[in-house]
Design a protein around this nucleic acid. Structure first.
Lengths: 340, 340
DNA sequence: CTGAAAGCGCTTACAG
DNA sequence: CTGAAAGCGCTTACAG
């Protein structure tokens, strides 16, 4: 079905010049006379000539395609990152192939391979939560620039873009302490989760700096954090002998689960128990009370990551090195922790 | 930086056979002896040979890449469609290039052109709301198969996948009437919006079939429907002499805006005023009361659309024809319209 | 059963 | 200032 498309050959024939000349004229090569350039370009425009990117890329070992791998494309935060990455890529003449790993390590491995096979110029990836084996990623890194974002891994020596998880988390807890909370619980994931660990260490740091005790009963670790787990773990926390007066759930989803449970028991938020989340997802203003959380600038993360990647594609360096870039995020204080 | 990759040539040299033979052996061509196939395939595996898809595609005038154009990639419904489309495409050996038109007609036009230039094998698109000029799409359609989904246009003779908007909307209104509502308002968009019009006609149809009057005061049309507009328009409806006893907002976002306003005025939902939306977005269970809405099976829409597209790519037909496919959606009754 | 050769559309070092 | 030729990695009709 693909119809005939104008080629250099046809232009050359119509104008009685060589293909080389047409190619140069179209690429504005300095050698070509203005006159020739002019007539070539006019005809090209008239015949709607578009270069065959793949012939070109094939020739130059470049496809102008960048692969993006994300664990779950339905997450709002992810889509804002993708949007930023797309904008940046398109403005520089690149196209983006997207794939979803569904948090499945096997699928992720397959993605890296097919991306390589499809000849992408570089890969932007956020890893699945449980990425243990990174051998194939290291192997890929030998062939292509890779930039990681959000879910990164310090086992991979490449550029990694994250937000200031630890600092933001510290600020959240600091805020809770400042409004008088003294018994702050956290709902987090295990040490396999990069982001969770960072947020947890921000939590610990804040408590320590305020000389507050760390009560193991107030530290809840779940396998896979979610709204459901938030609900469940709020129940667990409420059944403690000494209840918390604030709960930090390391994702908005879980924080919303917590709020739902607290509301069920008619617990006043934030007076009896304050709740804070992380992400500033679009849910955070739908829920009542509106959620205090950390605003993660997704588009900026996406743009920044793509910028670094394209830069590495354009200026290949021999030695691959780790580089950690933190994007600043800010806490957004709302009714779930503070009533004006 | 792109490193050396194993090629047919290298395999041929190493095995002392011709490139043709290697190519055939790898493609399991019946002419080749089992013995040869075996030794070629073994070495290929050992050297980690992956075919260069672009050389192949270039040769065969096929890229195995499909372009997907969506108005806004951050919409949850859109992401579920994309997920379905990705799954289907990947299972058939295709990759997907995604681009966002940001509901901008100029950008959309550019997308179609660069997709063409990048040599995609087909395009899957959801159009921007205000697509008037479709000339360039018709021109593209001459070169490539196009399948439209969600935001479609009957001005373009191609396969179009939507949900049963009219029917679903009819069912919603029917439900409201059955629970005793008699004064049902609708918040919709103008006639430039395909989906809005369909939903509106379902509304009218239901009223008519129940012999209910259509009160123009109960029909609110906004330019661009959103949560904010939902809030605003709920205020307008509340200031009417005769208030509605149910409000149908044609998107969940707007319905949530309506609920927020009603709650502000302490109006009982659903007793005084019931609220229904459309989409079954993830917000619909976050809001209190949970929202009655229409579940749109996004993944199925995506899978179906991609299936049709790939089918058209594989079996090109000479004459392009319109084909309308409706995916069934179901209403989900929740607290905002019915208290058990 | 295997190979030599042409060609997909483009760029570019070389020659003039 | 312009052209002829090689080559990117692959497939396939043709020949043997």
């Amino acid at each position: 079905m693909k119809k005939e498309v104008t080629t250099l050959k046809q232009l050359a024939k119509a104008l009685n010049v060589s293909i080389s000349t047409v190619s140069r004229a179209l690429n504005d090569h300095p050698d070509i006379s203005l006159e020739t350039k002019d007539k070539v370009q006019k005809l090209a425009a008239k015949l709607n000539y578009v270069p065959n990117i793949f012939a070109k890329g094939f020739r130059q070992h470049k496809t102008n395609i960048i692969g993006v791998i994300v664990p779950n494309i339905t997450h709002y935060f992810t889509t804002t990152i993708v949007r930023g990455a797309l904008e940046e890529a398109e403005s520089k003449g690149y196209r983006v192939i997207i794939s979803e790993s569904n948090n499945n390590v096997e699928k992720q491995k397959e993605m890296f391979n097919t991306m390589l096979q499809f000849g992408v110029d570089g890969i932007l990836a956020s890893l699945t939560k449980r990425t243990r084996n990174v051998d194939y990623i290291l192997a890929t890194l030998n062939n292509l620039p890779i930039v990681l974002f959000d879910k990164v891994s310090n086992k991979i020596p490449c550029t990694q873009i994250t937000i200031n998880d630890e600092e933001a988390s510290y600020n959240l807890i600091d805020h809770l302490i400042n409004i008088g909370k003294t018994r702050i619980a956290i709902i987090k994931e295990g040490e396999y989760s990069y982001n969770s660990e960072k947020r947890f260490s921000g939590y610990l740091k804040a408590l320590k700096e305020h000389n507050m005790d760390v009560d193991p009963k107030m530290i809840i670790t779940v396998e896979d954090i979610s709204l459901q787990e938030g609900k469940r773990m709020a129940n667990v926390l409420l059944s403690a002998k000494e209840k918390p007066d604030a709960i930090f759930a390391i994702t908005d989803g879980a924080a919303i689960g917590v709020i739902k449970t607290l509301k069920k028991f008619n617990i006043k938020i934030p007076e009896e128990i304050a709740v804070v989340g992380f992400s500033n997802s679009s849910y955070s203003t739908i829920i009542d009370p509106k959620l205090t959380t950390v605003d993660q600038p997704g588009e900026k993360i996406g743009r920044t990551a793509m910028k670094y990647l394209i830069d590495e594609i354009d200026n290949p360096e021999e030695n691959i090195t780790s580089k950690f870039v933190e994007i600043k995020s800010n806490i957004v204080i709302r009714d779930s922790s503070f009533k004006a």
